[in-house]
Nucleic acid binder design. Structure first.
Length: 408
DNA sequence: CATCCACTGGAAGATATGGCGA
DNA sequence: TCGCCATATCTTCCAGTGGATG
């Protein structure tokens, strides 16, 4: 057996490309930082903090700038002993209602062991507990709600928090909310009263363009990657891919890091463009596989129905036909089938996830309808299906049909 | 040109699950 | 134990769509 050997060809400090790395300087965001500092100024002056709403795509520096500035603020504010600042920062990605965000905040403030459970209370009870905790903390409190758009339209907390003081729920505590959103539409779908309160100050973070991304990559690569292991052309290529896709520095850095790992595994000393390209492909695959793993039983059955259609070379295939296939699969697995409308919902979800592609058909004799087909390689779809309940035989059968029809 | 069809997607209500307090 | 609460998932109902049809 081969020995483990430390490989040090390419990276000098790989963590500098990682998610948790805090750079000393944030590049290409000078204007935003300037504006942001002005918004935070009242905290230093001892007034009630502004509520702020930040929006912009993922990976454009919203969270990084926020962390950076709040750390600086906490540091600088030590010079003034009449201001007592606490920062509570939570990520709301997995919390999809105001209720859950409030629970999370309470638990964040409570000592370990005294946490409350995530269901069972009336919403107002949770809010009341939250106010008690904030009041106990007292002073100036800045609450950072990252990825706040995941609460959708259940935005009661965002209505409550900014008004807590004027409603006399809070007295000793001065609360400011910083909402961070990846979704531009989120702001508009908020209750107008929430917009009033929360969005009194707004900061927009635009996507990075390719030259900006290149500069960011250059300054990180200097720390992370050994001299001569990467050249400008490769960095430009990473920047171009990320700029075209999302304008996200996160994506650009991830690409570079994975490209480096791939190069390293091939025992090469230099990252080349082909490594970046395979990194890009792998990320795309992972995203889809992630989506398929998180499907519910019926979501999987719906997908499997399409997979089965694909094996028979019957895709693209319209809703009605897929539904029939789905019914058959349900019978084989002893699962109660859902109504057609629900399967239609699952197909919609799969389309949103980029697992299925739908052609909009307006030429048929019956108005408009979709015909679905797989938007991922047949093999990765069926591999992800292998743990659907009691369908091993059917899956084998589908594989056989697929190989006869040469579907891959 | 009005009507029709088969489908899409929004909305409201039903059901099941897991948890609280009394 | 019971009544209440939040949530995810599903069902039922329905308005809107737009080429085909008579």
């Amino acid at each position: 057996m081969r020995r483990f050997e430390r490989k040090q060809n390419i990276f000098r400090n790989k963590d500098a490309l990682g998610e948790s790395y805090q750079p000393e300087q944030i590049e290409e965001r000078d204007e935003e930082i300037e504006e942001y500092m002005a918004v935070l100024q009242p905290v230093v002056d001892g007034w009630e903090p502004n509520n702020v709403f930040l929006y912009g795509n993922t990976g454009v520096g919203k969270t990084a700038v926020t962390d950076h500035l709040l750390a600086r603020l906490q540091e600088d504010i030590k010079d003034y002993d009449d201001v007592d600042l606490s920062v509570i920062s939570i990520n709301c990605k997995t919390l999809n209602s105001s209720y859950q965000v409030a629970v999370k905040l309470v638990n964040e403030l409570r000592p370990t062991g005294a946490e409350i459970s995530s269901t069972g209370y009336p919403q107002q009870t949770v809010f009341k507990k939250l106010y008690e905790e904030l009041e106990a903390l007292a002073g100036t409190i800045i609450i950072v709600l990252d990825e706040i758009d995941s609460i959708g339209d259940r935005d009661e907390l965002l209505y409550e928090l900014p008004r807590a003081r004027s409603n006399n729920y809070l007295d000793a505590a001065k609360v400011g909310v910083i909402g961070i959103s990846n979704d531009f539409k989120f702001r508009d779908q908020l209750d107008p009263r929430v917009q009033d309160a929360l969005c009194e100050r707004e900061l927009h973070f635009p996507p990075y363009d390719a030259p900006e991304l290149k500069n960011i990559l250059e300054s990180r690569a200097e720390i992370a990657i050994a001299d001569d292991s990467v050249n400008t052309a490769v960095l430009k290529y990473c920047a171009a891919l990320a700029a075209r896709d999302s304008g996200s520095a996160r994506q650009a850095l991830d690409l570079l890091r994975l490209a480096g790992e791939i190069a390293e595994n091939q025992d090469e000393n230099v990252i080349k463009e082909e490594h970046v390209a395979s990194a890009q492909t792998r990320f795309e695959q992972e995203r889809v596989e992630e989506g398929m793993r998180e499907l519910t039983t019926h979501g999987r059955l719906a997908l499997l129905a399409v997979v089965s259609k694909a094996a028979k070379k019957e895709t693209p295939s319209r809703t009605r036909e897929i539904y029939e296939e789905y019914i058959t699969l349900c019978k084989s697995s002893g699962t109660d089938p859902l109504a057609q409308r629900s399967v239609h919902n699952h197909l919609s979800d799969l389309r949103m996830l980029g697992i299925l592609a739908a052609n909009e058909n307006r030429s048929g004799s019956r108005g408009n309808y979709y015909s679905y087909q797989l938007d991922v390689p047949f093999t990765s779809a069926i591999d992800a299906m292998s743990d659907v309940l009691r369908l091993d035989n059917e899956i084998e059968l589908i594989r056989d049909i697929a190989s006869v029809n040469k579907v891959f």
